[in-house]
Amino acid sequence: MKAIAAHRHHRFAPAALLLLALLVTGAVYAAVVPGPASAAVATTTDIDAGRKLFTANCATCHGPSAEGRDGAPSLVGVGAASVDFQVSTGRMPMVLNGPQAPATEPVFDAEQIAQLAAYVASLGAGPAVPSAEQVDPALGDAANGMALFRTNCAMCHGAVGAGGSLSEGKYAPSLGNSTPTQIYTAMLTGPQSMPVFNDANISPDEKRDIIAFLDAQKAGSPGGSDLGSVGPIAEGLWVWVIGIGVLIGAAVWIGAKSS
């Protein structure tokens, strides 16, 4: 008993107990808390097919090893999410140089886009394409998404994502036709003039809330005409130009009739 008591009162005993407690806490946390959902892991076949597609369609601008060239950035480390956004929206391959690459019909199908993304992702660590659960609007909170969107996005994209003009010929596109995955990957990678909203800025759940809010806007305006969905400026202009104009016209007509 004296030997046991001596070990219990050893000067390193508190440190050993603290270390044991941390190890147990970490193990329990890892077992109980689910890990983040992610897209399917790419296979070697996908990477090889993506390399062939890249060589045939992208290497002219981005270089044979995606190292980048004048006017075309390096793709090493941009991740699969960036490729998925740029190619699925038809912005890449870029047809003409300009202030901004416009969205067009995609050149590649979904399988080819996944293969290109797998190849670029193999060149260096970067953001992955989100899973279906991460972008499901039904799992998001549209009310919280509205607050987040109007704080972080509305100054460029408008109150409900209708888009707006920027400087030097650039613009924030309308989000009405964007898929949930495209919205998520745009926030994650910050294409063109858009800032990056990584998971430290806007968490994955908050990104899904924003997607839920934008999805709710597709139902249309419950109050009738949305007046372009650009917010209170258009509504105020309508009131002053049309509403007040009608009242002034009515007052002039009444005055003319009475005289």
Results as ranks from 00 to 15, higher is better:
His7Met: 11
His9Ile: 03
Ala13Phe: 14
Pro14Asp: 00
Ala16Glu: 14
Ala16Cys: 09
Leu17Lys: 04
Val24Tyr: 08
Thr25Val: 12
Gly26Asp: 06
Val28Gly: 05
Ala30Tyr: 12
Ala31Asn: 10
Val33Met: 10
Pro34Arg: 11
Pro36Ile: 03
Pro36Ser: 03
Ala37Cys: 01
Thr44Arg: 14
Ile47Thr: 15
Asp48Lys: 10
Gly50Val: 10
Arg51His: 14
Lys52Tyr: 08
Lys52Asp: 12
Thr55Gly: 12
Ser65Lys: 11
Arg69Lys: 15
Pro73Met: 05
Leu75Trp: 13
Leu75Gly: 15
Val76Thr: 10
Val78Asn: 08
Val78Arg: 15
Gly79Glu: 01
Ser82Val: 07
Asp84Ile: 09
Arg91Val: 10
Val95Leu: 15
Leu96Gly: 06
Ala101Asn: 07
Ala103Val: 11
Phe108Tyr: 10
Asp109Val: 10
Glu111Arg: 11
Ile113Glu: 08
Ile113Ala: 09
Ala114Asp: 13
Ala114Thr: 09
Leu116Asn: 07
Ala118Leu: 07
Val120Phe: 03
Val120Arg: 02
Ala121Gln: 13
Leu123Trp: 03
Ala132Met: 08
Ala132Arg: 12
Gln134Tyr: 10
Leu139Ile: 07
Ala147Ser: 14
Ala147Arg: 14
Leu148Met: 11
Leu148Gly: 04
Arg150Ile: 01
Cys153Ile: 03
Met155Tyr: 08
Gly158His: 00
Gly161Pro: 02
Gly163Arg: 03
Gly164Lys: 06
Gly164Gln: 01
Gly164Tyr: 06
Ser167Phe: 12
Gly169Met: 05
Ala172His: 04
Ser174Arg: 03
Gly176Gln: 06
Asn177Trp: 02
Ser178Pro: 01
Gln182Tyr: 04
Leu188Glu: 09
Thr189Cys: 06
Pro191Ala: 03
Ser193His: 14
Asn198Gln: 02
Asp199Cys: 05
Asp199Phe: 09
Ala200Met: 14
Asn201Thr: 15
Lys207Asn: 10
Lys207Ser: 11
Lys207Met: 13
Arg208Asp: 12
Ile210Phe: 01
Phe213Arg: 04
Leu214Phe: 03
Ala216Glu: 14
Gln217Ala: 07
Pro222Lys: 14
Gly223Cys: 00
Gly224Lys: 13
Gly224Val: 05
Gly228Tyr: 10
Ser229Met: 04
Val230Phe: 02
Pro232Thr: 05
Glu235Trp: 15
Gly236Met: 10
Trp240Ser: 01
Ile242Thr: 12
Ile248Glu: 00
Val252Cys: 05
Trp253Pro: 00
Ile254Tyr: 06
Ser259Phe: 15
